[in-house]
Each structure stands twice: as C-alpha cells, then as structure tokens.
Design a binder for these strands. Sequence first.
DNA 1: TCGAATGTTGCGAA
DNA 2: TTTCGCAACATTCG
Length: 281
Amino acid sequence: MPELPEVETVVRSLRGVLTGRHIQAWQIFWPRSLDDPELPATLQQQADNRITGLTRRAKWILVLFANGSRIGIHLRMTGRLYPVSMQEWPTLDKHLISWAWQLDESEWLVFADQRRFGRTIWLPDENSYNAFNARFGPEPLGRKFTTASLFRALQGSRRQIKPWLLDQTRIAGLGNIYVDESLWLAQIHPQTATNLVPPKQAQLLRDSIRKVLRRAIAANGTTFMNFKFLSGSEGGYTDELLVFRRQGQPCPRCQGLIERIQVAQRSTHFCPQCQPWLVRS
DNA sequence: TCGAATGTTGCGAA
DNA sequence: TTTCGCAACATTCG
C-alpha cells in the first residue's frame, strides 16, 4: 500500500495514536526488515524515547523522538502499520509480522508485511536526516513544486516521462497508480520524452499531479489487496481511478478504449486517443 | 506452471 | 554521463 496518499493516510491516522507514547519493548520477527540490527538496542539506550510526532517524506513514514532522532519506515508493496490491543496481540498470526512495538498502556504497534519488502531505518541526528532527505526530489504537494521548476527539470532529461515521474529523486512520492492517473488527466502519453513536454503541458501536469494526490488523500488512498489503514478500513479512491487497471474500458473523457502497455517494466494504462504521443500547446 | 503485483536498488550494457 | 533492461528481494493469486 505504497504511494504518497496511502502513506499520508497512515501517518494521519497514527499521529494521534503514537504522539506522546514511549516504546517499551521491541519484538523482531523478520530481522532483515531492519536496516541496522542494533537499532532496537540503540533505541533502548536513548534517555528519552518519547515519540513527539509523525511525518511523511516521499513514501517514508518518519517517527520523531524527543531527542531529535528518527525512525523511518517504508511499507514497500504490502506493509501495514496499525495498533493492536493487548488483548488482541496474543491471537495475532506472527508470521506476517516483521516487528512490533509495545507502547505505553500496553498497546502494540504492528508492522505486518506479507511480502517482507518493507524496511526500517535509523536516523540518529540531523546529519543523517539531511542525507536521507537529499535523496528525494520536491514534495509534489509542497511549495517548491512549481510549474517553473517542473518545466526546468523536464527540459534537463530525455527520458520517457513515466519512469521520470516514478524516479523519487525527481519528484517524491509518486508511484505506478498515480502516475498513470496524472498523465491521463494531463493528456500526456506516458512515453513522451520529458524534454518535449511544452510549458503549457508542464503546467497541466503539475496541476494534475496535485489534484490527483489531493483527491486520493481525501479518499484515504486506494485499496487493492493489501492497503488498509488502521484496523481494516479501506481507501476510497479505488472507485475514483479513471485509467489504472481499466484496460479495455472506455476512456471517461473521449470514449476511446483504455490500453495497457509495458513502460520501463511497469504496467501502464492510458488512452491512446486523448493522450497523444506528444502534445503541443 | 507462469506471470504479474502499489516499490527500490544495484549492476552491466547501450 | 545518461539511460535502459534486468535481476533480486518474498509471497500470493489468477
């Protein structure tokens, strides 16, 4: 359950649950999910383990501690992060769980992950956080994601636009679903070379990305098989998808048939009729 | 049995 | 230097 809106949904739903709590114990079921095997011991040695907040950067969940250290959690394809009561905890099937924190008042925070791709990293200080932060491009919903900066960046590359948008060093947080949706809304063919996108289309693309992400966040994300936030609630954006996994169905804009092709090893959905190869302004 | 699945990384070859 | 394809990670589902 992986893209920006789903991660944002998890962060918002867990912020109130985690803020102010302490991690009393850490149970590890899949050690490889930890970037640093010493992380649990390191955390225990911290004088103050109070969680002061929860934020998101790209598709990472960041848990903030009182002394300025952070833990980053990436859900990858199938990760889920949710609280579980003390009563419920013993009944859980542990083989799907990568790790779990025991919080104050005897609640558990579970990181369950069917495919076990999810990762957890340790950012002890500002230096490590800055290095982490530098790995990503601008947040698409942030102030720095302007039409001018997007157009400039597009001019600097000759790659196909779809893999370019998926590249987290260019824009942070977009994944396969929302790239297809955004390109459809902006009427840009996914294989268009980035440097051939005219300024007007760049503006439309920037606005489309923000519109799609905002609507998805408002709907609590998209649910396929694995994404559920908190205990079992489903994301509502699944019903609002206009092209993703709708191959063979009529385009909502022009009634052409949605096609599915491979672009950069990812399944890609678009309308060949109203997303021409290259759009001129 | 094979292929594909919301993601990321690293390697080697154009 | 940039871009691209592929494998790997691990598991389930159709």
